[in-house]
């Protein structure tokens, strides 16, 4: 065996093992679709991100339902949920917590740690780009290490821990764009777009003041961990892992498989963390489809939200109005997933 993964799962998940957790996850997903109308694919990706135990950055105009989505997800999962409204004067201690001098019952004073809102299972970082870089950086360790270190002592965060951040792509005055190091820590960057006419009609005709209904089903932490264990056992075949590696490598201009758009517009490609994130997200996506193995289509489905925020485009791309999403779409479209290199005049047809 070339990879340790195979050693871990010598027998892939059998139907009787995968079906119950998948049904539970899809039940939660269906409930999310019921609460928030018209965004099934976005919900699926958010849920895949959650099952991958990754952090998600939601980007969209005000009022499109970013916060509502996170709140609905928090209500659906029976987890501790905190919301922080990021503002320019927000300090790191406002998120992480602080040591406060307090007098105990015997009259002695001591520094006592008061945990901040980060000590939760699901943290909604609303309008994260309005906070200063110092405050944004306070989340770096929490997101990556899932722990907080203050005054030399490291405190682990509850398990599971997710950050679901939102940001507004307009009103850039007085905002601080997220640094690449922090962006890289988000599993997905999902664009939340406006609803179509049909959805809007359903919202205003069925929802008073647009308030979503209360969830009829709540998933416990134990159930979520059970689902996690199922996702962990989804088998990643070697050709698929190689496909992921090739995609990530091809986002670099100096790669053999880089397309012209990458060479022209991408300053810095995706990191190895992107490959890991894509593999995990693809597992979760395959799991939600009830499959015990990851296929190429799962990778294609999660490639855009995984790489979207990880490509650093150059000024030429901005000048030509080229977006990361369009480059990724072309890259995925032109790359043969099997890696079979045939002469140009020989083609494999279905």
């Amino acid at each position: 065996m070339a990879y340790g993964i195979c050693d871990m799962t010598e027998t892939i998940l059998q139907p009787e093992e995968i079906t119950p957790p998948v049904e539970l996850a899809n039940k939660a997903l269906a409930e999310l679709d019921r609460i928030l109308l018209g965004r099934s694919e976005l919900h699926r990706l958010v849920f895949a991100g959650v099952l991958s135990r990754g952090h998600i950055l939601l980007e969209g105009l005000p009022g499109v339902g970013k916060t509502a989505l996170v709140k609905a997800l928090g209500g659906l999962l029976n987890l501790q949920f905190n919301r922080v409204q990021f503002t320019p004067d927000l300090m790191p201690s406002d998120i992480l917590g602080a040591h406060i001098l307090q007098e105990n019952h015997d009259g002695r004073r001591a520094m006592e740690f008061h945990p901040g809102p980060v000590f939760t299972n699901l943290l909604l970082a609303d309008e994260i780009n309005r906070a200063s870089p110092k405050t944004q950086s306070a989340l770096l360790e929490a997101m990556q290490e899932r722990s907080v270190t203050l005054l030399g002592s490291t405190r682990p965060l509850p398990d599971p821990f997710f950050v679901l951040a939102s940001q507004n792509p307009i009103e850039l005055e007085g905002t601080y764009p997220l640094p690449e190091a922090q962006l890289d820590r988000f599993l997905f960057k999902l664009n939340v777009t406006g609803a179509d006419v049909e959805t809007l009609d359903r919202i205003i005709s069925t929802r008073r003041r647009g308030e979503p209904p209360a969830p009829n089903f709540v998933m416990s932490g134990e159930e979520l961990r059970w689902i996690f264990s199922g996702v962990d056992r989804v088998f990643l075949p070697r050709p698929v892992s190689r496909y992921i590696s090739r995609i990530v490598a091809a986002t670099h201009a100096d790669s053999d498989e880089a397309i012209d758009e990458v060479r022209d517009y991408v300053g810095y490609g995706a990191s190895p963390r992107a490959a890991i994130a894509m593999a995990e997200a693809a597992r979760a996506y395959a799991f939600l489809s009830g499959r015990p193995t990851v296929g190429f289509d799962d990778v294609k489905a999660v490639a855009s939200p995984t790489l979207n925020h990880r490509l650093v485009l150059n000024y030429k791309a901005r000048f030509d109005g080229v977006s990361s999403l369009s480059i990724i779409a072309k890259l995925i479209g032109r790359m043969d997933e099997t890696g079979i290199k045939l002469p140009r005049d020989v083609q494999i047809e279905a």
């Binding site: 065996m1 195979c6 799962t9 010598e10 027998t11 892939i12 059998q14 088998f235 075949p237 070697r238 050709p239 698929v240 496909y243 395959a286 489809s289 499959r291 015990p292 193995t293 990851v294 296929g295 190429f296 289509d297 799962d298 997933e337 099997t338 890696g339 079979i340 494999i348 279905a350």
Partner: peptide, 25 residues
């Protein structure tokens, strides 16, 4: 690669590829 090709073209969702390295049960 050919196994991956057949898996992809026959919509096996990775099952055919997994069969090379793991027991499908």
């Amino acid at each position: 690669s050919v196994r991956a090709l057949l898996d992809s073209r026959n919509d096996c969702g990775g099952l055919l590829m997994a069969g090379a390295d793991a027991d499908l049960g």
